[in-house]
Write a protein that binds this DNA or RNA. Structure first.
Lengths: 227, 227, 227, 227
DNA sequence: GATGAATGAGGCTTCATTCAT
DNA sequence: GATGAATGAAGCCTCATTCAT
């Protein structure tokens, strides 16, 4: 858990701070996701984290800071998993696919936390909220970069990249936000495959289309192998 | 405000109930949107609604019921505006466009309320939550029907309709959910136009494409006329 | 209890506000005097006042506001009793004596509260503290006026009136502040008589001295009659 | 810092105990004076004293014991400074003047601490409180002795010595207690001079008056020399 | 039907004190 | 002897809900 913010702590030992905040954030994500921020008490977070109530306030200023810690720990997952998924992949279209695939899998892995972000970001004071937005933009940029590369390679039309990015982002988030319905329609892999097809169809140039056609089999084969 | 649920009221006069609930819901939407459900007190709702605290509990059982009232009043807007936008339009593609356009405008008209729905639906007890979901599905169905009509008319490919619908729905919601960023990129009309183009490109058959090409000018002309 | 300050209240009925604040202040004076401000809980104040905890916060913003109410209610006693004691008395020396006598009796009547003022004024936020100081100055002014009249009548030397006033004021307060020792030395009446003699001896002109000599008997006779 | 009480310490080395308690008391006086006893935390005292939280509890049993230490360290100042000021002076009137002058200067040197004593003594458990009272009586006795000497020398009337003492004591304390107002009226030296004049005028016999008249110049000359 | 004062349970937060290192 | 992280009881304050008028 890398928290770049100065959620001030009374404790000096940096390693310990890291460890405790990790515990607290993990417990908070779980409880806040389940019950929501306001329905969860600090006592419950403490109990689940296996520490005392007072301890939390040595590592955090506010209950709201606990929320911040929780949200950041979720966002950090994106920052780690997407680059990891892209590692070593050079072909632009494949990179985009990997990024979107990773994104959706992270979302799937912590659907409740994703929903939590939508529910609770507004519960933060403006300054904290900005931090969350910055993280989101950073994540989006990873998708946007892939799209830009596809355009540069002549595979995609020259669209407004950021708007296109939001289609992909909302598509990933929807898996969590509308999971209550989507899960009745299809599984995650199919959701990703169909969605990627759908969103990509708008973007592909004729050249891109040819490349994609060849590609798909490989990708899907890779997909089925991986799972 | 048509609340089909039995939010039990101590008052018998149906007309009065309707009126009071309208007042309460309107005040609640405003306050909940601004401050969130938990940060808003019933006393504040009462003050804004211009009634006494006690009165609210004669028309509602719970604070959660006030939330339900608020959310339903928002959802009702869709139920009214989308059909209204379709009224008298027969051409399938135009119907879809009108529906999406109306959807986005409703969202834009009460962005805060849309965000509220995402934030607060989970604060409802399961039973109430189902009600909200049902409303959402009903709204989605209006979009889905338009898509189905396009498919039937040979303008769209035979895709999974509900998945396609969600792309449109999320696109509309995104205008509220990500407004903090999107507004920096483009205005609402351009957002709708570009987004409709984008999502539609995936669906159009060659025949549909021709029709759409002709169509666009008309639609946009209509758009610029309307606004 | 006249509280000229805007300790804001959520309750609108002015009469009720007056009544409730009276209850709260009375309970607070008693408990704070006994146990001190910090050792007394709001719950205890509520119980003693015969109201619920929450009720207090409809008439007061803070626990500190309760302290303010308590202190002001004490200070108000001076504002009422001293003028009352002077009512109808014209002879300057007698007026001073009456004022000091009344002052000391008020202090004696609520010794604990007087000590409370010394203990707790600093617990108030600066703005509130100023209010208390203003009240104190107003009370002092009543003594000072009497001294000034004696000077004008040629009974007292022309000393620095305010410094002289403080000798009288501290003398009265000492009865409460050092009561643990003073009560072992003499009773209140003797304390007042000796103290007045003592402080007055410094001030009297020869003319004043003659007048005082005649006076004393009358005053003391009045004193013994009254008690 | 000589603490004659058995504030029990876990540490045996008497010199170390002395040193540590000195540190703690000094820090406590400063913080308690500023913020008050209850608003100051032990952690703050520890930080200001440059030691760890836990260490304090090796030299003190209670937070209340820290207060006791603090109050005693203040009272000790009187015990040292007043005798020092009297050293070598034999003339009774001068001795009284020196004692009062020293008293007022000590008060002035730690006005906040003087106020602290008035605010916080009641926060001590009765047994501890007695200790403080004993110290105060001891200090008073130094003044009382001077007064008694003046009476014995025929310079003062035969008044109730202890009551007279309290006039001087309250006069000194008032400089701290009412400093917010007194400082606007005069400086310390003038306060002392005028006050001494005032209180003394009541006591002097004709013989004393003559002696005092001669004396005053010397005293004031000494005063202006010293400062 | 409407009012709004009153209730009191519940949660966040502080901080004196302890204890393992 | 010293440290400082950890504990958890306690208190202020909020606010959903009730009920007498």
């Amino acid at each position: 858990l890398k928290v770049e913010v100065d959620v001030k702590s009374l404790v000096t030992d940096a390693v310990l701070v890291e460890k405790r905040r990790g515990q607290i954030a993990a417990a908070a994500v779980e409880l806040f996701s389940e019950r929501g921020f306001y329905r969860t008490t600090i006592q419950e977070v403490a109990r689940k984290a296996g520490v005392s109530t007072g301890l939390i306030y040595q590592y955090v200023h506010d209950k709201e800071d606990v929320l911040l810690l929780a949200l950041l720990s979720v966002l950090d997952a994106y920052k780690e998993r997407i680059p990891a998924a892209l590692d070593g992949v050079v072909e632009p279209l494949e990179r985009l696919w990997r990024a979107v695939d990773a994104y959706c899998h992270v979302v799937d892995g912590s659907r409740a936390a994703t929903v939590l972000a939508y529910r609770s970001t507004k519960s933060l004071p403006p300054e904290r909220r900005e931090l969350i937005k910055a993280h989101e933009l950073a994540t989006n940029a990873m998708i946007a970069d892939c799209i830009r590369a596809c355009i540069a390679a002549g595979l995609f039309r020259a669209v407004n990249v950021e708007l296109a990015t939001y289609h992909f982002v909302m598509f990933a988030h929807a898996w969590a936000l509308k999971h209550w319905r989507l899960r009745q329609i299809c599984g995650l892999e199919e959701y990703i495959a169909q969605g990627f097809d759908f969103l990509t169809a708008s973007l592909l140039t004729p050249a891109g289309r040819r490349r994609y056609a060849r590609f798909r089999k490989v990708l899907q084969a890779a997909g089925s192998r991986a799972r």
